[in-house]
Design a protein around this nucleic acid. Structure first.
Length: 427
RNA sequence: GGAGAGAUGGCCGAGAGGCUGAAGGCGCUGCUCUCGAAAAGCGGUAUUCCGUAUAAACCGGGAUCGUGGGUUCAAAUCCCACUCUCUCCGCCA
């Protein structure tokens, strides 16, 4: 959420920022509503002051057993006026909030200006794609041949876009989760967190999934609860409505959760394999930091996520999202894209974002500096570290052998109970 | 699912229409005392908004006692609804 004061003070800058991300927002009307709010508030507070002081006087008179009837009659009218003004005020505030809550975050100055995905800026490439002396197969073909993935039966159980793993495949998925969590907790200092997988509307609104993107979510019928699309939602909301101590910052959490996305509007896109599922596993990294640190923290967040791919020895590249491709809540985002040999493309496997104070405002997460009275909004960041299903797919494709088997990346072998290779016999 | 109890500041806990943003205690913190510490004494110790196109401090004012509504000149206090917590019974991984 943007600050109305900030919108007033930096009007043209914010207008420009919203244009850059292709958002059509009427800021002028928002300001008009805010003018109206101020006007109402001004009169209302004056009347409340009057009511409070006269009520004291009435109390005094009554204590002295004197007559207070004329004052009471006068206050009756004042109170009626207060009531109307209060209604006006809450209506106006609701109107302002309704406008404010659908305005996306303003891109950071370092986010390249651009229309869409094509304008994203390459930051770097790591690792060299392997040259296969055979035609590399797609991970769904490899997985089904090894009998470690079964999309057909998953569709029978639930429907399209649900995963079903067996044997060494199920083990590999679990190994990846443990591997990622171990690195982030032991080496990178994040606190392991296992949050609820179902959250309420307030949490979804705080992180920015609601109110605009409800059709992307799975909602639990008969309740106002939703399946989480990412651990970002429950984990960011851990500190909802709290004032944190400066000494405790930064606060780092990592969480494994399944993620549920309706993928509305993605019909016909990535219909095969693990890339786009309604349910997938992800290890998430979430940071709560001081404003002045947040861009340095974004760089380390990115490094922490990259580290997983480096250890697994899978080639990837990093891009900075352009203004037009930024998510609703983000001010700046790096995507990590992993090399998928069968399609010969890089596919997103992690998205690392700085939300600045955008989510903190919505979630009302603040902190207080040592010795200062004033509270400030913290900055939140998060990134996948990594999407497990897509990592699984990348391993299958990058480590496939001519005979259809898949070797396990060395770093993962201890997590696989010593299994070094998934072949037809081991599955 | 059935029956009951409750929600007040960082914590404990009083308050039961007006003098209560809220007694008292604990905690934290500043000062006095001390070579230093302890003890004792004195003080401070929630958040937020407005004061109308600028920031900090102060000052003046508004709001906040789980949330929302109602009664009243006046609500932490009375009424209604909701949410959450706890206890007992039943069921259950």
């Amino acid at each position: 959420m943007l600050d109305v004061k900030n919108i007033r003070q930096n009007f043209s800058l914010i207008k420009k920022g919203l244009e850059n991300r292709n958002a059509d927002i009427n800021l002028e009307e928002l300001i008009l509503s805010d003018d109206k709010r101020k006007e109402i508030l001004f009169e209302l507070e004056e009347l409340r002051y009057k009511r409070n002081s006269v009520s004291d006087k009435i109390a005094e008179l009554k204590r002295a057993k004197a007559d207070a009837n004329s004052l009471i009659l006068e206050m009756r009218e004042v109170s009626a006026r207060i009531k109307t003004l209060e209604k006006d005020l809450s209506d106006t505030e609701a109107e302002i909030n309704k406008r404010l809550i659908v305005i996306p975050n303003i891109p950071h100055s370092s986010a390249p200006v651009g229309k869409n995905e094509a304008d994203n800026k390459l930051v770097k490439k790591e690792g060299t794609p392997k040259n296969f002396d055979f035609e590399p197969k797609a991970h769904w073909d490899i997985g089904e041949a090894l009998n470690i993935l079964d999309f057909e039966r998953a569709a029978k159980i639930t429907g399209a876009r649900f995963p079903l793993y067996y044997g060494a495949g199920a083990r590999l998925e679990r190994a990846l989760i443990n591997f990622m969590l171990d690195i982030h907790t032991i080496e990178h200092g994040y606190k392991e967190t296992l949050p609820p997988f179902i959250v309420n509307r307030n949490s979804m609104t705080a992180t920015g999934q609601l109110p605009k993107f409800e059709e992307d979510l799975f909602k639990i019928k008969g309740t106002d609860y939703f399946l989480i699309p990412t651990a970002e939602v429950p984990v960011t909301n851990i500190y909802n409505n709290e004032i944190l101590a400066e000494a405790n910052l930064p606060i780092l959490h990592t969480a494994y959760t399944p993620c549920f996305r309706s993928e509305a509007g993605a019909y016909g896109k990535d219909t095969r394999g693990l890339i786009r599922q309604h349910q997938f596993n992800k290890v998430e990294l979430v940071k709560f930091v001081k404003p002045e640190d947040s861009y340095a923290e974004l760089e380390t967040l990115l490094k922490n996520a990259e580290e997983i791919l480096k250890r697994l020895k899978i080639p990837y590249r990093v891009v900075t999202l352009c203004t037009g491709d930024l998510g609703f809540s983000a001010a700046k985002t790096y995507d990590i894209e992993v090399w998928m040999p069968a399609q010969g493309v890089y596919r997103e496997i992690s998205s690392c974002s700085n939300f600045e104070d955008f989510q903190a405002r919505r979630a009302n997460i603040r902190f207080k500096r040592e010795g200062k009275k004033k509270t400030e909004f913290i900055h939140t960041l998060n990134g996948s570290g990594l999407a497990v299903g897509r990592t699984f797919a990348a391993i299958l494709e990058n480590f496939q052998q001519a005979d259809g088997s898949v070797t396990i990346p060395e770093a993962l072998v201890p997590y696989m109970n010593g299994i070094k290779k998934i072949g037809c016999l081991t599955s």
